[in-house]
Simulated assay, not measured.
Amino acid sequence: MAVLVALGSFVMTLVGGWAALRVVDRRHLVLGFAGGLMLGVVGFDLLPEAMEGAGQRLHGVPVALLLFVGGFLVAHVVERLLALRQSEHGAHEPGHVPQAGLGAGAAMVGHSFADGVAIGASFQVDAAMGTAVAIAVIAHDFADGFNTYTVTSAYGNDRRKALAMLFADALAPVAGAASTLLVTIPEDVLACYLGFFGGVLLYIAAAEILPEASHRHPARSTLLCTVAGAALMWLVIGTAVH
């Protein structure tokens, strides 16, 4: 049952990627909207789930927040190292580090796999909980597909690589749900992963996507797209929860 439900995530992810592909001539608006979606996913979905599932403290600070900051720092260090390596090979144009784009896309795939695991694990509890979690996951998989294609191509990767990462992201929830047929993942482990990934995603949005969106097109429309993306995730996640 969990695998069949996860097929909805597969379809919704591809729809999101298709939407990003169709508006390539409005790249600054796409990046602005994607940045807002990422901020919304982190603030309204990933971080609250991580805090709820991994609320224990370490030296006075919730473990989920420690992992959140750790994810941000790891993303920053990796991106800087890749940029330095790229500059040593003669590529000096900022924002075009293809390896960083592939790494960011791979992080999105990992998140989608965790979404599938969450669907499967919730169905192990009962059908009602599984259905509720599946609705929440499918509801924001449009954003996942949109962001995966956008963030992969934004760093200078060609269309073929961006589409390959999109299909990997679409398949990941199905694979994650299928994996729960063989093993049960502890809730606190999933919560820790969500906290870490939230930090990674926040770095991508705040340090890369949004500055790139506004650098060449500092227009009100870009800002409005960012606000709209965050507001949309608030409405989607709020509706799914209730």
Rank of each mutant, 00 (worst) to 15 (best):
A19W: 12
A19G: 07
A20P: 10
A20C: 06
L21F: 15
V23C: 03
V23G: 00
V24K: 13
R26E: 09
R26W: 02
R26Q: 13
R26H: 06
R26P: 04
V30F: 01
F33K: 04
G36F: 01
G36C: 04
L37S: 05
M38K: 06
M38P: 06
V41Y: 00
V41I: 15
V42I: 12
G43F: 06
F44E: 13
D45M: 09
D45A: 09
L46R: 14
L46W: 07
P48M: 03
E49V: 07
E49L: 10
E52Q: 13
E52L: 09
G53P: 07
A54G: 04
G55Y: 02
Q56I: 06
Q56H: 11
L58C: 11
H59Y: 11
H59G: 12
G60D: 08
G60M: 15
V61M: 15
P62D: 00
P62R: 08
P62I: 14
L65T: 14
L66I: 15
G71H: 11
F72Q: 10
F72N: 13
L73P: 11
V74P: 07
V77L: 14
V78Q: 04
E79Y: 07
R80V: 14
L81G: 13
A83I: 07
L84M: 15
R85G: 15
S87W: 08
H92G: 09
E93N: 05
G95Q: 07
G95N: 08
H96Y: 00
V97Y: 02
P98R: 00
Q99T: 09
L102R: 10
L102S: 05
G103P: 06
A104M: 09
G105Y: 01
G105I: 02
G105F: 01
M108H: 05
V109Q: 01
G110D: 00
F113R: 02
A114V: 13
A114G: 06
A114Y: 01
D115E: 15
V117N: 02
I119G: 01
I119T: 05
G120R: 01
A121S: 15
S122R: 13
Q124A: 14
V125G: 00
D126C: 06
D126M: 06
D126F: 05
D126S: 08
A127G: 09
G130A: 02
T131F: 10
A132Y: 01
A132C: 03
V133G: 03
A134D: 10
A134H: 00
A134I: 15
A136G: 15
V137M: 06
I138F: 11
I138G: 04
D141K: 14
D141Y: 07
F142R: 09
